[in-house]
Computed example of a mutant assay.
Amino acid sequence: MASPTASHRMIRRRPYAVLAGVIVLGGALLGPRALSPEASAAPATAAPRAWSDKADGFASLDGGTTGGAGGQTVTVTTFSDLKKYATATAAYVIRVGGTITYPEKGHEVRVASNKTIIGAGTKGEIVGGGFFLKAGVSNVIIRNLTIRDTRMTDDDPDDDGYDYDAIQMDTADHIWIDHNRLERMNDGLIDSRKDTTNLTVSWNIINENHKTFGIGWTDNVTARMTIHHNWFSGTEARNPSIDNVANAHLYNNYLQNTGSGNWSRGKSNTVIENSYFKGVKDPYYKDSGASLVVRGSVVVDSEGKQQTGGSGFDPGAFYDYTLDDAEEVPGILADGAGPQADIGN
């Protein structure tokens, strides 16, 4: 398949060749001395990245994802106020101004349409619970939060007994999950279930979990999603597991010391670009009926499957995007992933 044209995407280029999904730079294969996040940070002369308040990727299409824009802005510091505004029928921008510990462990607040839930700088934390977006919910932004710690220890080694997710979506539409830190939940960190579509997941730290990011639970092949600039670290399964997705575009993600890689399942059509895999079991692989195209990615200190096949699709035919060089991704995410002090203020 031909790569997207320059009119569709902007690419920072360095000379490289690609051999079976592994980038060779300057004639030397990246090996055990691959750059650490600190060592691979962008040069000091580089301009700081400005964080846009507009969703990109598939969440930007068909009117975009604006969340609570146009509604009242409120700041919450208690569970009762968070629940009050998140479940309201009116549009709200809900700033989380401190740590909110859920009174019932594992509870998931039922978020209604047209909401932005955003951490005020790095102060916004959700502890002991998460969020649920039911069928029909649309136009929601969950941004700049830390959501953590529903893990149970009572004879539940595989996180099967308690369905405690950070963010679960069941046939939701136009969702942007951006700049969060998600960790140590008893089930999924992100579950994009059934026919959830027009989803963008960007610039998140996805950390210390078993069932990490599951996508599917449907026989339909209609969903579209963009997953970019996320740092997966110390996670086991579903990084992500992509089942029956019509268009899945993954780029500039960093998988570090994970028990699995990117899995294109069912009849999914998946494109991976300029991602960095270090210490990953099965960096990328596919089911027999799925399509998986991988280009420009780096694989270091990893073992197992690196499978591709199928025609893929052209993400640039849907939206504009900028690719960072794969070898710079660990440093870029060390600087920019997760909650940011200049977002939500």
Rank of each mutant, 00 (worst) to 15 (best):
R33K: 14
E108M: 12
T78G: 00
E303K: 07
S52W: 12
V74K: 01
S264D: 13
G136P: 08
D163I: 11
E327S: 13
L29M: 14
N209G: 13
T218G: 01
I177L: 14
G21L: 15
P240W: 04
G316E: 14
Q340C: 04
W203R: 13
S260C: 09
I141C: 02
N144T: 06
D178I: 00
M185C: 03
R49A: 10
A42I: 14
P4Y: 06
K83E: 12
K278G: 07
S302L: 07
A290P: 13
V96Y: 07
D178P: 01
P48F: 09
Y102M: 11
H174M: 04
G259N: 05
G216V: 02
A55V: 06
V300A: 15
F232Q: 05
N253Q: 13
L199H: 00
S264I: 11
Y85V: 04
D158K: 02
D155M: 10
I11Y: 14
G279N: 10
I23G: 15
I332G: 10
R143V: 03
A59H: 00
N198V: 10
D301T: 07
S288Q: 06
N180I: 04
S233P: 07
D187T: 04
E328Q: 13
L30Q: 15
T77V: 04
Y285W: 11
S40N: 09
D243P: 05
H8K: 04
A6F: 01
D301Y: 05
G68I: 01
S36A: 05
I332T: 12
G31L: 11
K267I: 08
G266R: 05
G216R: 00
G309I: 03
Q306L: 11
E327R: 01
L333K: 00
L29P: 13
D301V: 06
N247W: 09
G304M: 08
D156T: 00
S297N: 06
A326F: 11
K281G: 08
M1H: 11
A172I: 06
A86K: 02
P339D: 08
